[in-house]
Design a protein around this nucleic acid. Structure first.
Lengths: 115, 115
DNA sequence: ATGATATATAACCGATAAGTTTGATAGCTT
DNA sequence: AAGCTATCAAACTTATCGGTTATATATCAT
């Protein structure tokens, strides 16, 4: 997977409230599929599918404990998506403040012209 | 739209390379649909659909200039998504460093026991 | 070996996504 | 008014999503 595909997978994974809730739960520590499924009014296979999408995006990883497959959150994919967004937000804000500066300049100029 | 639905729409909008490229272009300033469509090997209606999804997510807005509908990027939705991610990353990092601290403690303790 | 527990896989369904082509609409130009 | 330009909307196709039920697999417990 290249960067673009990873971003695709990550944003798709984040674009569902169930998956975001699962991530929120995993922030507090590892959990098994059963534990993750418990709060939701949804079948176990549905949760397993959600976990698969989170795993594909690299947002979680799974280990093994007897029959259980405990999930834990992984920081790297989260960081990649955050960085991408942060970068855009920064450039956007920079452009905005440039616009603000421009407006300030215009105001100052008009003031000067009045005197 | 509540916060969850807005996040859904925003992440879905970000989960496509064409739409991310459109945003990248719009960071540099307003552009018409034709201008935005130009770099892509894709029909104009396809671009219009992408723009609709970006607009639904509040990531862009459109004004009017004769027949043209110039698009510009909007910061708010970008900020909401960034904040959501940033928050998660921070908690995750905090937990991680807690784990690091714990490991350090254990190491120190073992060392004490050796002496 | 038998049964219970935890999870994954397969097959299916309805809704939505992402593209197409075709045609409509709105505003400019002459 | 006639035609050009920019954009949208509708109808269609194929693929993917998000859920289901039923079934298979792996590990534990007895």
């Amino acid at each position: 997977m290249n960067e673009s595909e990873r971003l695709d997978a990550t944003f798709i994974a984040l674009a569902d409230p169930t998956r975001r809730a699962i991530l929120a739960r995993l922030i507090e520590g590892e959990a098994t599929v059963m534990e993750l499924a418990e709060p939701f009014d949804m079948s176990q296979p549905a949760i397993s599918k959600h976990l698969k999408m989170l795993e594909r995006a690299g947002l979680i990883s799974r280990s093994r404990d007897a029959q259980r497959r405990p999930c834990k959150i992984e920081g790297a994919a989260l960081k990649e998506a955050t960085d991408w967004l942060e970068n855009y937000r920064k450039v956007w804000e920079a452009n905005f403040s440039r616009l603000d500066d421009l407006l300030d300049d215009l105001k100052a100029q008009r003031k000067r012209e009045q005197n």
